[in-house]
Simulated scan of single mutants.
Amino acid sequence: MSNFVLVDLGTHAKFIYEQLLSKGIIVRFGGIWNLPGHIRVSVGKEVENSAFIQELNEILHLRM
């Protein structure tokens, strides 16, 4: 049981991490745990989770 999820974003994880931070979404880059393709996302309030999902979707659509 934990209050976070580990998200596998592949080779673009560091870029996505930096983009989220620039938008005020605070996550942790998995590289510090030798997981450079992942970010760690804390489970928050519904509004916080929704903001994360919205920003992640926008970033992913820019990359595709």
Rank of each mutant, 00 (worst) to 15 (best):
S2C: 08
F4M: 10
S22L: 13
L6V: 15
E46T: 12
V47P: 04
R40N: 00
G31F: 11
S50P: 04
E58V: 09
G10H: 03
F52K: 03
E18L: 15
V27D: 06
I26M: 10
I32W: 13
K23Q: 15
L62T: 13
G24T: 11
A51Q: 07
W33L: 14
V27W: 05
G44D: 02
Y17K: 12
G10R: 00
F52G: 00
V47I: 08
E58H: 06
Q54G: 05
L60Q: 13
T11I: 10
G24V: 10
G31M: 04
E48C: 08
F29Y: 15
L56I: 08
I53S: 11
K45L: 09
P36F: 09
N49M: 05
L6G: 11
E48N: 08
L35S: 14
V5R: 03
G30P: 00
R28F: 08
L56C: 07
D8V: 14
R63L: 10
I39N: 04
N49E: 03
V43N: 02
L9V: 09
V7H: 10
E48G: 06
G30T: 07
T11K: 14
V5E: 04
F4Q: 04
I25S: 08
Q54S: 07
V41P: 05
H38K: 03
Y17W: 15
I16E: 15
G44Q: 01
T11R: 11
V47C: 02
S50D: 07
I59F: 02
V5N: 08
M1N: 09
R28K: 12
K23E: 15
I32M: 11
D8N: 15
V7N: 06
F4A: 13
I26N: 10
N57Q: 03
V7S: 10
F15H: 15
L20T: 04
K23P: 13
L56K: 04
R40I: 02
I39D: 05
E55W: 01
N49A: 03
H61K: 14
I26E: 11
G30I: 01
I53Q: 12
M64H: 03
E58K: 10
I32K: 15
K14P: 14
G10E: 00
H12W: 13
L60A: 11
F4R: 07
S2F: 12
I53Y: 03
I39H: 14
V7G: 10
I16L: 14
M64W: 00
Q19V: 13
N3G: 09
V7K: 14
F52N: 01
F52I: 02
M64D: 10
L56M: 08
V7Q: 06
A13Y: 04
I59S: 00
I53D: 12
I25K: 05
R28S: 09
T11Y: 09
V7L: 13
R28I: 06
K14H: 15
R28E: 05
T11A: 12
P36S: 02
L20R: 04
R63T: 10
I32E: 05
M64V: 07
K45I: 06
A13E: 01
I16M: 13
T11F: 11
N34P: 04
E46G: 03
E55C: 07
R28N: 10
G37Y: 05
G37H: 02
L20E: 03
E58Q: 10
E46Y: 02
E48W: 07
Q19E: 15
L6R: 13
I25D: 09
N57S: 05
M1K: 09
N49C: 01
G31K: 03
N57L: 01
I25N: 06
S50T: 08
L9P: 02
